[in-house]
């Protein structure tokens, strides 16, 4: 694919803190990433790395307080998002950018039918007041919404779409619910789709089917996507580029192809080795846990768990830098100058 294409979404130096009684958790610590038009990127990292916070920031869904956006900016189609009012966000949500939630068991409202979900999103996305719409207009919108709901369900190859509309979430399987959640996010054909670990709660085989389906739809409609996963294998299957996140920072960024032919950051290497092997053995994985966001390490956040740590790693945090081969990595192993001093 072309090297520099047009950016649809750009996050620059984002920092997000969470204030609580125990102190300030410095969760997102300078994340930058970019999604080009028509591109699928993956955001990979262990649970608790700040992936959800990062993408929820894009939709203005991180509650402030407790969160504080202390630095950085997010731009979508050149427009800065962080200063938007709730009403302006509302216009973008669901249409410009939409999101697929992680858990199909909790992301659908239990007391509304699937049809009510889909038709409401079709009818009222971006609208302000639902009270002053005339009955006639509502009826027409509802009719169109129903037709569109059926169309999108058919596109997703869901059998008996009309019947599904009358069902309540509890009457559907997890896989079916996950598909409905995808349909909800796609009903207005957004420009950017954020998929936050869809189907992680489901059977592996069901999950695979859904991912294949999702990839097909996104390609068919020309939608860009940020795909979140803790599984590098899934990222490999679905995305053009990969961002590896650790403890609220991007530690490595590469095209999928180059990342899988060679990974640079010790954390990425650890993640790769934790993918289950073909012979059925579990990988080695990485010992230890993510550091406490309330008291993050002074130097590299990965220091405690790193197999190749050096003394100065605990003192100065590395910066994300572009290497001579165009790859980006945030690690002192690749910082010529620093290595030089100690060398």
């Amino acid at each position: 694919m072309s090297v520099k294409s047009e950016a649809l979404l750009e996050i620059k130096g984002l920092k997000v803190n969470f204030k609580s009684f125990e102190g300030t958790a410095q969760v997102i610590n300078g994340v930058s990433l970019k999604v080009n038009k028509g591109e699928v990127i993956s955001l990979v990292g262990e649970s608790g790395c700040g992936k959800s916070v990062t993408v929820r920031s894009i939709l203005g869904l991180v509650p402030t307080p407790p969160a504080q956006f202390t630095n950085g900016d997010i731009t979508f189609e050149g427009q800065s998002l962080l200063g938007l009012s709730e009403k302006e966000w509302q216009k973008i949500r669901g249409k410009g950018i939409s999101m697929i939630f992680q858990d199909p068991m909790t992301a659908l409202n239990p007391v509304f039918t699937i049809g009510q979900h889909l038709i409401d999103v079709y009818m009222w996305q971006g609208k302000r007041n639902t009270l002053f719409t005339s009955m006639k207009e509502k009826r027409e919108l509802r009719k169109k919404g129903r037709a569109r709901a059926i169309e999108i369900l058919e596109k997703m190859r869901i059998p008996d779409p009309e019947g599904i509309l009358e069902r309540y979430p509890i009457e559907l399987s997890g896989g079916m619910r996950q598909r409905i959640i995808i349909a909800l996010a796609l009903i207005h054909t957004p420009k950017l789709l954020i998929a936050d670990e869809p189907g992680t709660a489901l059977d592996v085989s069901v999950q695979d089917q859904i991912l294949i389906e999702l990839k097909r739809l996104v390609e068919m409609e020309g939608i860009s996507m940020i795909f979140i996963t803790h599984n590098l294998g899934v990222a490999r299957m679905i995305s053009d580029r990969v961002y590896v996140m650790y403890a609220g920072e991007v530690v490595e960024e590469a095209t999928t192809q180059s990342l899988f032919s060679q990974s640079y950051h010790p954390y990425t290497q650890g993640l790769l080795s934790s993918i289950p092997k073909l012979n059925g053995q579990m990988g080695d994985g990485i010992d230890g846990r993510i550091p406490d966001f309330l008291n993050p390490p002074q130097g590299c956040r990965f220091y405690d768990r790193c197999s190749e740590r050096m003394d100065h790693c605990s003192l100065t945090p590395p910066k994300l830098q572009t290497l001579s081969d165009g790859r980006k990595v945030s690690c002192h192993l690749f910082a010529e100058e620093v290595v030089g001093i100690h060398g």
């Binding site: 939409s98 909790t106 659908l108 409202n109 239990p110 409401d120 999103v121 009222w124 009270l131």
Partner: peptide, 29 residues
């Protein structure tokens, strides 16, 4: 704090609708 309420916001639904329809029906039940 329900996921489906966060989801409803992410679809760009109006706040009033989320409160008086999506939340209230559950709460009233």
């Amino acid at each position: 704090n329900k996921d489906y309420i966060l989801a409803a916001r992410s679809y760009g639904l109006p706040k009033g609708m989320i409160v008086y329809k999506y939340m209230l029906k559950n709460a009233f039940a």
